[in-house]
């Protein structure tokens, strides 16, 4: 594929992409990779230090293996981030396309609404949603999905408006092409690059925000292992077991960094004008 060939010229992005792939595989094969059941408690080995044979990253306050919990934690992070972005992409895409195609008052109203939502910080929106739905993985997905929707709506709308006025669309319309067909054949190929970059960036956000919510105690509830929640408990036991917070934070950092690097490379690769 042409895309993969070009990706080879961006070694950093390629490395970041491989890193993301590795994390995805880790999440998928967590039961195979994790040395222990992440929820298995062993009061005999509470707060085992770093480098303990069998528990290389140590254990937490219930004697659970930290490495296993981090490996399982990737499932929550990725699942929440991917679903939330998918929700935002779908909702924002539909709203943006509707606004762009209908034009007029509907367009203005919809986009004003998006501007207003955009003015409220994502974390704030998420806090509101979680507050009403109660903390759970589902709430976080809904919360972040709602929070990211305006971004995608804006992209979709501007693409539709841009394409709609183009001469070849007029021609296609005159020949009786339906809006659905127009979106599939004309709009989508045009905005795919921007969408792809935005999706990658949003995934990085999603992982960070999920961890933030988890840290605030508003994410996935115990005993399910998530990186955000591990940071909260890790903070309480900073002195007995510094590795809980250290490695959970590092996991977030590495994955988000990989997504950001990949997104940056993707932007350069898909848009030759923005060469850094």
């Amino acid at each position: 594929m042409d895309f993969l060939k070009r990706l080879r010229r961006y070694p950093v992005a390629l490395a970041a992409g491989l890193c993301i792939l590795a994390v995805v595989l880790t999440a998928l094969f967590a039961p195979v990779l994790a040395p222990y059941d992440p929820d298995e408690m062993d009061t005999a080995t509470r707060f085992a230090p770093l480098g303990t044979p069998g528990h290389w990253l140590g254990t937490d306050e219930f004697g659970r293996d930290i490495l296993s919990r981090i490996i399982y934690g990737s499932r929550v992070s990725l699942l929440v981030a991917f679903t939330a972005v998918a929700v935002a992409l779908a909702a924002g895409g539909v709203l943006g396309v509707l606004a762009g195609f209908s034009g007029g008052v509907a367009d203005v109203l919809l986009m004003r609404l998006m501007d207003l939502l955009f003015a409220i910080p994502a974390l704030m929106v998420a806090l509101g949603v979680v507050g009403l739905l109660g903390p759970s993985a589902f709430s976080v997905v809904v919360a972040l999905g709602v929070a990211y929707t305006p971004l995608f709506a804006r992209i979709a709308r501007s693409a539709v408006v841009g394409v709609r006025s183009a001469a070849y669309i007029e021609a296609a319309r005159a020949m009786g092409a339906s809006p659905a067909r127009l979106i599939r054949c004309e709009v989508l190929p045009n905005i795919l690059p921007i969408l792809l970059v935005q999706v990658t960036a949003s995934l990085a956000w999603g992982i960070l925000d999920e961890a933030s919510l988890g840290f605030l105690g508003l994410g996935v509830q115990p005993p399910t292992s998530s990186w955000g929640a591990m940071l909260t408990t890790g903070r309480q036991y900073m002195y007995q077991a510094p590795s809980i917070a250290l490695f959970a934070g590092a996991a977030v950092l590495v994955v988000v960094f990989a997504f950001n690097l990949f997104g940056d490379g993707l932007r350069d690769l898909l848009d030759p004008r923005s060469s850094r």
Binding site: A204, L208, A211, S212, F215, L231, G234, R235, M238, Y239, P242, A245, G249, A250, V252, L253, V256, F257, F259, N260, L261, D264
Partner: peptide, 21 residues
């Protein structure tokens, strides 16, 4: 980009433990 990817609470925790404690 690394700083951009850094979870704020993690950075804060590290600073807190390192400088404060």
């Amino acid at each position: 980009l690394a700083g951009y990817s850094m979870p704020l609470f993690w950075l804060g925790t590290l600073l807190m433990v390192w400088l404060g404690v």
